[in-house]
Simulated scan of single mutants.
Amino acid sequence: MADLREQRVCIKFCFKFLKTTADTHQMLKEAFGENSVGQTQTYDWCKRFKNGRTSTVDDDRSGRPSTDTTSENVAKVRDLIVQDRRLTIQDLCNTLGLSYSTFNKKFYRDVLRRLREDTRGKRPEKWRMNDWVLHHDNARPHTAYIVQEFWAKNKMTVVAHPPYSPDLAPCDFFLFPKMKMKLKGRRFDTVEEIQAETQTVLNALTKKDFQDAFQMWQKRWDRCMRFQGDYFEGDDAE
Rank of each mutant, 00 (worst) to 15 (best):
A139C: 11
V158R: 12
T42L: 02
G229P: 10
A144F: 06
M1H: 15
V82A: 08
T88E: 05
R5W: 01
D91T: 00
S71M: 02
F103E: 04
G52A: 08
R120K: 11
F227L: 00
R128V: 11
V159L: 15
Q26K: 13
Q39F: 07
K29T: 09
K76F: 04
A204G: 05
Q90P: 09
Q215F: 05
T42I: 04
A160N: 14
M179I: 12
R116N: 09
V57Y: 00
N73H: 08
Q199H: 03
Y145M: 06
A144Y: 03
Q39S: 07
H135P: 03
Q39R: 14
R78G: 02
W45L: 09
F176M: 09
D60F: 07
N104H: 09
G33M: 04
T102I: 03
T69F: 15
S36A: 15
S101M: 11
N94P: 06
R86P: 00
Y164I: 01
T88D: 11
D84I: 00
E30S: 12
G229Y: 14
E149T: 10
K180S: 07
Y231P: 00
L92I: 15
S55N: 00
S36T: 08
Q215I: 02
G63P: 04
V57I: 07
L4H: 07
D235P: 01
F107Y: 11
S36N: 13
G33D: 13
C93F: 01
R85T: 13
W221R: 03
T206W: 07
A2P: 11
R5K: 14
I194V: 14
R220G: 10
G52Y: 02
L28K: 11
F150C: 05
C93M: 05
T95G: 03
A160G: 15
E238T: 14
R61Y: 07
L134I: 13
L168E: 06
Q83E: 09
G121T: 14
R220H: 07
V133R: 11
D118S: 14
K106P: 01
K105W: 03
K47I: 10
T88L: 02
M225I: 14
V77H: 03
F32Q: 05
T143I: 15
K155W: 01
L168T: 08
G38Y: 04
T198M: 14
G38K: 03
E117C: 01
R109V: 04
L96Y: 09
F188K: 01
R128S: 06
D172Y: 00
E192L: 03
V74Y: 00
K155G: 04
W127P: 05
G63T: 04
